[in-house]
């Protein structure tokens, strides 16, 4: 396997001024990213998550070369991002959910054509990629509409296309589904899943929508207070926090004596079992209950695990970098 992204001890500090008296202001250094190590192999789909102000976007900005790290080193596609930003830009694609890389006044068709010149993409390759995106993302209905008149979902489909037309090796996605309705979210996720399945493009996805992660990423990196607090699969995260499946049983009549290991809810009409491993033994035990009406198995909830992870990291020791002036 070849690492397409490598970061060692990546750190970004911001200086913020804090009121320290009537007229006095103190300078304070805040580390938005505090020693991140990361290695991403070619073709991986990586979820990079964390609470607001954790340092996700700052990491992405350093990896794409638009923010100079305070310390540490990074290589993306074998290039050092900041000094080789222009060369790197030809080999990566970036989608920001909250800002646009398209030209507000131009129709998508013109924007895509302009990007072909800017990235110096061969016309035939550009046309092939555009045809594929138009098919998968249903762009044809609004190719001639100025970007300013597109809905958020339409614009995001345009943004994804714009980021892919030059055939990037790595695609960085910063909250690509933010603000989208469920249909648009599904369209974006399906498209990214198809893209990732090809194995040609490495995807790095930051999001607050954990459904994106569950649908797309096998590997999850969680960052908090600028540090990596988890790096592994979603299953490993569940295992670490002891996430268990729940078997929920609804009864016609309340039980007089609940079975062993059951929590009783709804005036005794609902029994909840927390199980580790296969649920079959519990189900077999319950099948004989005469008043059994319904039985459901609930998979462990990733949001719950991640919430516990964020809370476990504790409050910020030196303020909230995300809301400080000049901070990311």
């Amino acid at each position: 396997m070849t690492a397409v992204i490598e970061a060692r001890g990546l750190r970004k500090e911001f200086t913020v001024r804090v009121k320290a008296g009537r007229l006095r202001r103190e300078k304070r250094v805040v580390a938005a990213v505090d020693g991140v190590d990361l290695r991403v192999e070619r073709g991986e789909m990586l979820g990079y998550i964390g609470p607001n102000g954790a340092g996700k976007s700052t990491t992405l900005k350093m990896l794409t070369g638009i923010l100079t790290p305070s310390a540490g080193e990074a290589r993306v596609c074998g290039l050092v991002p900041v000094p080789q930003r222009t060369r790197l830009a030809r080999r990566i694609g970036v989608v920001f959910g909250q800002r646009s890389q398209l030209w507000w006044d131009l129709p998508l068709r013109d924007s895509f054509d302009l990007l072909r010149h800017i990235y110096r993409a061969p016309a035939a390759d550009h046309a092939t990629r555009l045809r594929r995106c138009r098919g998968l993302l249903d762009l044809d209905a609004f190719m001639d509409t100025p970007v300013r008149q597109l809905s958020l979902g339409q614009r995001m489909r345009g943004e994804l296309t714009a980021a892919l037309l030059h055939g990037p090796e790595v695609l960085f996605l910063d909250e690509p589904t933010i603000g989208l309705d469920v249909v648009s979210k599904q369209a974006v996720r399906s498209f990214l899943a198809d893209l990732g399945a090809g194995g040609d493009v490495t995807l790095v996805l930051t999001t607050h929508d954990l459904a994106d992660i569950e649908r797309l990423c096998r590997r999850l990196v969680v960052i908090d207070h600028g540090r990596v607090v988890h790096d592994g699969s979603i299953e490993a995260l569940h295992a670490r926090y002891g996430s268990r499946r729940r078997v929920v049983v609804d009864l016609d009549e309340p039980v007089a004596e609940p079975p062993e290991g059951a929590a009783v809810e709804a005036d005794g009409r609902r029994l909840v079992f927390t199980v580790e491993g296969p649920a079959a033994p519990v189900i077999a035990r319950l099948a004989g209950l005469p008043t059994l009406r319904d039985l459901t198995i609930e998979e462990p909830d990733i949001e719950e695990v991640v919430t516990r992870l964020y809370l476990a990291s504790g409050p910020q020791p030196h303020g909230e970098p995300g809301i400080s002036p000049g901070a990311p």
């Binding site: 900005k61 794409t64 070369g65 638009i66 930003r85 222009t86 060369r87 830009a89 030809r90 970036v94 920001f96 800002r99 646009s100 890389q101 800017i118 990235y119 110096r120």
Partner: peptide, 18 residues
């Protein structure tokens, strides 16, 4: 001011020339 300049810097052209 809005941070949209990031999109300019992510293109492989010199921002001044662009």
């Amino acid at each position: 001011r809005t941070g949209d300049v990031a999109a300019d810097l992510l293109r492989p052209v010199n921002p001044v020339l662009s």
